[in-house]
Amino acid sequence: MKRNLVLLVVPPVVALALLAFFHESEVAAIPDQATSFEIAKDTQENSKASQKPLLKRPTAALAMPKTASTQEEEQPHSSPLSPIEQIRAIKNKTALHEGVLKDHETFTRYPSDNVRFDRLERDPVTMVYETHERTTESNDGTASITAWSDKKYLLQGESVQLSARVDDGANRGIQNKMMSALYLNESLSLGTFELVDNDNDGTYSLTLASEQTQNWQPGIYKALIASDHKALSEAVSFVISPPIIELTGEYREHITTKGDLLFEIEVNVAEPARFYVRASLYTSSNSPVGSAQFSDSLSTGEHWIPLTYFGLMIRDSDEPGPYLIQTVELAKAGVPMLRMPPAKAGMYTQSYPLEEFSNQTYQEQQALK
């Protein structure tokens, strides 16, 4: 799937702090009329007092009985409202206020390693593997070049195809000459390659065969594609990973004593490293439930990877089991993250009634500890 997508992500904690700051600033900027009157009054009284001779007060004045107002002043101040409580107290909330409150509810409703999503296109696992088109216009704005690849992540020994097209006004896919310079980690040059239009449809392609990638190092590869038409250029990136972790096809699951679904996937590790595993859970009607993740160091050999799906998150799907894991994300953790191609799983659980899963929020469970 090709998508042009730009996301601006603001962490909920940062947004929360900013909103609380702005709200406090607005309140502080509005002077209180009663307070202003008392300050003016005190200023006048102090001015008059400075013009009178100082008199010694009687000692009895120190033992004056406390009035109700005096007692109120001596009462300890109530604890300040938390940022989230300050936002809840705002009467006329903006869309950003409502969004922060919703995010806060989500982050306290489920544990941090679970992500609930309600639409297929928001699956965090499949979104990682989506390819994207990149487009750049010419300086005069009359032409553009669009480039893409058929894969974002591949293993050593797998092929990848790079494609590009030049549009000139109403003419889509015009004839031109395209060359590509390929780099590893933006420093090591692997040479230049020509893109060709075999179908004469205006789309030029370059296939990097499995024989070439077999001996290439793991890392991020960038192809700089340039056209001779109005000096247009664009870049496409992909990642080559070593085949060091894979699914064995074995899995098992059960409901824990806390009312969560523990789904275990067996993997085979070719060399020791720190790995990252993530998978999304779906209902039998292909409605999304949510994702769970795992990260830890694994030695060579077979291992069971535990993925815990929070009970309330499953309840919120409002569908009983069986449940399905379609795709598993396997990656060697590090910089860069070396992801394996998407692992197609097709693993179904047993049939579970919703009542077997916990109906407590994560915040409520933590409060009971």
Score class of each variant (00 low, 15 high):
199 D>Y: 02
200 N>A: 15
200 N>P: 04
200 N>S: 12
200 N>C: 08
201 D>L: 05
201 D>Q: 00
202 G>E: 00
202 G>V: 00
202 G>F: 00
204 Y>Q: 07
204 Y>D: 06
204 Y>V: 14
204 Y>T: 10
205 S>A: 12
206 L>Q: 07
206 L>K: 07
207 T>K: 15
207 T>L: 14
207 T>P: 07
207 T>N: 14
208 L>V: 12
208 L>C: 08
208 L>R: 08
208 L>P: 10
209 A>N: 13
209 A>M: 14
210 S>N: 10
211 E>N: 11
212 Q>W: 00
212 Q>C: 00
212 Q>L: 02
213 T>F: 04
213 T>K: 08
213 T>G: 06
213 T>L: 10
214 Q>G: 01
214 Q>D: 00
215 N>P: 03
216 W>K: 02
216 W>R: 06
216 W>N: 03
217 Q>K: 09
217 Q>L: 13
218 P>K: 03
218 P>R: 06
218 P>W: 00
219 G>W: 06
220 I>H: 10
220 I>P: 10
221 Y>D: 00
222 K>R: 15
222 K>D: 12
222 K>A: 14
222 K>L: 13
223 A>M: 05
223 A>W: 05
224 L>A: 08
224 L>R: 04
225 I>S: 01
225 I>D: 03
225 I>Q: 00
226 A>K: 09
226 A>W: 03
226 A>R: 06
226 A>E: 07
227 S>V: 09
227 S>T: 09
228 D>S: 10
229 H>K: 14
229 H>A: 13
230 K>C: 04
230 K>L: 10
230 K>H: 05
231 A>E: 15
231 A>M: 14
231 A>T: 15
231 A>D: 15
231 A>K: 14
231 A>C: 05
231 A>I: 10
232 L>H: 09
232 L>M: 14
233 S>L: 01
234 E>V: 15
234 E>Q: 15
234 E>H: 05
234 E>L: 04
235 A>V: 10
235 A>I: 12
